[in-house]
């Protein structure tokens, strides 16, 4: 049974690209269209890696990241951010949430800013799962 990669993005085209890359690298893709759906899939599918977008309807990537990293059961799953939002902006939003009384969270294990070459994406995924 190959390792599972959960892809959370509201754009079906982006999910399709990532899913192809995941498959081409020999892993199994699972998809979710927003943070809420993503969290449910983490529970049901127990992925080995989460590839996460930031700007999504319902629950955003900012909140889903926080939910995973503050949950003992899931905090060890590596998260690879794949988004158009700059890394600094994402880290700042997490810092603001921490300052407003949330628990402190670590930085994401990986961060890729769109546009990303699929080869580069494949290499990043490999790094976590190989």
């Amino acid at each position: 049974m190959s390792k599972k990669v959960l892809i959370v993005d509201d754009d079906p085209d982006v999910r399709m690209i990532t899913a192809s890359v995941v498959q081409d690298n020999g892993y199994t893709p699972v998809e979710a269209a927003n943070g809420e759906e993503g969290l449910a899939k983490v529970k049901s599918e127990k992925p080995d890696l989460v590839v996460l977008d930031v700007m999504m309807p319902k629950q955003s990537g900012v909140r889903m990241f926080r939910n995973l990293k503050t949950n003992k059961k899931f905090q060890d799953i590596p998260i690879l951010m794949l988004t158009g939002i700059a890394r600094n902006a994402f880290l700042r939003s997490q810092k603001v949430l921490t300052e407003f009384g949330d628990k402190a969270v670590p930085e994401p294990e990986g961060y890729l800013e769109k546009p990303v070459d699929p080869e580069e994406l494949g290499a990043a995924i490999q790094k976590f799962l190989a």
Binding site: D11, D13, V14, M16, I17, S20, G84, K114, P115, V116, D117, P118
Partner: peptide, 8 residues
């Protein structure tokens, strides 16, 4: 986002 799509 568009470029990401093209690359993909």
């Amino acid at each position: 986002n568009i470029l990401h799509g093209f690359k993909g």
